[in-house]
Simulated scan of single mutants.
Amino acid sequence: MMSICGNDALRELSSPGKSGSVFFLSQDDRFMIKTLRKSEFRFVVMGNMFCTELRIHRRYDLKGSSLGHSADKVEIDENTILNDLDLNYQYYLEPSW
């Protein structure tokens, strides 16, 4: 509650998403707030997975679609945001999951 409603203001991220949504971060980086269209909801609050002491070496913007969702960059570094078609891993989950 203090992360979002405390004395410090939320920080607006510099580039909005393609959907026109605006993103905000809590001062402690623990939460991300995304604005949505009025027909969906007013806004959504998400835990920020990037607020960690672990080194993040790959980032993906997954949409669940393969249409136009691969990175255009040839050289990939830690700042490159990859897309659906760039995810070349297989995940095996327990059937109950």
Rank of each mutant, 00 (worst) to 15 (best):
E40M: 10
R11V: 01
M46D: 05
G64H: 06
A9L: 05
L36D: 08
R59Y: 04
F24D: 04
T35S: 14
R42L: 08
D29Q: 04
F31L: 10
L25M: 05
D8A: 00
I33E: 03
S14P: 07
L93R: 13
S26W: 10
G47Y: 12
L54V: 12
D86M: 02
W97H: 13
V22M: 09
R30M: 01
Q27M: 02
N48G: 04
T35F: 06
L82V: 00
I33L: 15
L93K: 11
V45H: 03
L25I: 08
S39A: 12
L85W: 06
T52R: 05
D61R: 10
E78Y: 10
F23I: 02
I33S: 06
N48H: 00
S66G: 13
N88H: 15
G6L: 02
A71G: 03
F23G: 02
T80Y: 02
N7D: 05
S15H: 13
R11K: 06
Y60M: 03
T35H: 10
M49E: 11
C51F: 07
G68Q: 05
I33T: 05
D28W: 00
S96A: 14
I81S: 10
G47L: 13
R37T: 04
L36N: 14
H57K: 07
S70V: 09
G20M: 02
L25H: 12
K73T: 15
G64N: 06
K73Q: 15
Y60W: 10
S3W: 02
L54S: 12
G6D: 00
H57I: 09
M2G: 03
K73V: 15
R42V: 10
G6C: 00
F41L: 11
L67V: 13
H69Y: 11
S39M: 08
L82Q: 10
D72V: 09
T80K: 10
D61S: 03
Y91Q: 14
S19K: 13
L85Q: 06
T35A: 11
L93V: 08
D28I: 00
C51D: 12
L54C: 12
R30E: 06
E40F: 02
S14E: 06
I81V: 15
E78I: 13
D61L: 09
K73M: 13
D8S: 03
R42Y: 08
H69M: 13
D61F: 14
M49I: 11
R30V: 00
Y92M: 11
I56Q: 04
L82D: 04
R55C: 04
H69K: 15
N83P: 01
S19T: 15
L62I: 11
D86K: 06
R58A: 04
G68C: 06
L85R: 14
N83V: 07
D29G: 01
S96Q: 10
V22W: 09
S14V: 03
M2H: 13
Q27E: 01
K73D: 15
V44Q: 15
E12N: 00
K38T: 11
